[in-house]
Design a protein around this nucleic acid. Structure first.
Lengths: 235, 235
DNA sequence: CGAACGCATATTGTATACGATATTGGCCCG
DNA sequence: CGGGCCAATATCGTATACAATATGCGTTCG
């Protein structure tokens, strides 16, 4: 019977593959759950429960949790397990300050190296973004936003900066998605994205960087405003 | 016999404790080996060998390696093991650019909140730094430098920025230590540290931030100069 | 009646054992 | 004689089993 359980669970994991190891698959599954809000900050993740649910042993679960801790999505305290980590207001403010400092600077470095292929890819992303906006499918918003911003900065030749920004985007779109859907800011963001693209393609790099700065600043202010109202989650 | 081996190895690990779990202890041990240069970039870490050496099973080794991968010290490729990761010139340049962008900004936020206790702690650090400089004990240099810079920025109220900078400092002092000991720049750095402290204590915050910027810029240029001569390590 | 101690239970941490996968050497075929 | 295929080996990935540690409650003493 236990075998049956395991086979069923394992299939459900392997089914969504593209991964080479079970632990990586579990990490990805949990990451999506956290980013989508299915696992709220403060929730405790018990290894036994997860192992049984996925139909696997606890070892890959443990390794997945360690990988998530690397990305700051959970916090592991020895002998007490892993809890989904939330962001304090201070941290959210910090994240946006960092984005304001870094992204425009990188755009100036990257913009002139954007190829026609890059532009068409970015426009396609913006298209999807607009579609998601109309459809109200908030789940995909963060991912698209992330890929758009990273795509813009791709050719800055600053690999470490890029991975840092990737982390910032991942961490700040989680609280965003939960509550930003009610405001009209998503539409505004879409418009700004379009304008930034246009400016880049026209060679108005400095103007594009300025707009990007304003874009991020506004998103940050808006999110913090919303964030203040709800109770601060666990640190 | 195997028991004897294990007991001996385990004692060697537990001896340097202060840790609560074996995997954390192993992670710390390996981290020090990598940062000290005992494990050069490109070296392959075999789990069996490490497990036998420490006298423990492979499980804690694996978890330690995952934690190291989180810090970017090793790169794990599925079914092929973990290799110590080096930094390309591009990455070193990027790291210092980031420090130049971030550290002065944070100092301005943090400086006015530095307490007398902070100052005495920082001066003590600088003292140790000077002693290490005279004694030529290069091993401790990076750690002291790291604690000094982080101490300066401690009260900026920007937790995420601080952890990012901590990572940058850790990653860039590894190549530094290997080859910077030959130049006189360590003495220069020591002098600049002292001056920065004085300026902060005198309330000349902007001047302190400017000097900090110059300090980091120079360190970066110097390191990159040295770095170019030796062959670039593995990415 | 309150607080501190100790035990029972639940959960995590580690060891051992097994299975899967990539790499290396040799062999066969073209 | 060179290149590609196959098997043997080594290493990693996962499952199962055991040990260590923290938490919660009941008891007992002040």
């Amino acid at each position: 019977m236990a075998v049956t359980e395991r086979a069923r669970g394992a299939r459900s994991v392997a089914g969504g593959l593209g991964h080479r190891t079970v632990s990586a698959a579990v990490a990805e599954a949990l990451r999506q759950r956290i980013l989508s809000g299915a696992l709220a900050p403060g929730v405790q993740l018990r290894q036994d429960a997860l192992a049984e649910e996925f139909g696997i042993s606890r070892i890959p679960i443990r390794e997945a949790l360690l990988q998530l801790e690397a990305g700051g999505l959970v916090k592991i305290v020895p002998h007490r397990g892993a809890v989904v980590s939330g962001l304090s207001i201070e941290e959210v403010e910090d994240i946006f300050q960092l984005r304001v400092s870094l992204e425009p600077q990188l755009l100036i470095l990257s913009a002139r190296h954007l190829t026609p292929d890059d532009f068409s890819e970015l426009r396609a992303l913006r298209e999807e973004y607009g579609a998601a906006l109309k459809a109200g499918t908030v789940e995909t918003w963060g991912e698209l936003n992330r890929r758009f911003h990273l795509g813009l900065l791709r050719h800055a030749g600053r690999p470490r900066s890029l991975s840092i920004i990737a982390g910032l985007l991942q961490d700040c779109d989680r609280p965003t998605r939960l509550q930003l859907s009610v405001t009209g800011d998503v539409a505004r963001a879409d418009l700004e994205h379009t304008t930034i693209l246009d400016l880049c393609e026209a060679g108005e790099i400095v103007a594009a960087a300025n707009l990007l700065r304003i874009h991020v600043e506004h998103a940050g202010r808006s999110l913090i405003e919303i964030y203040r109202r709800s109770a601060a989650a666990t640190a």
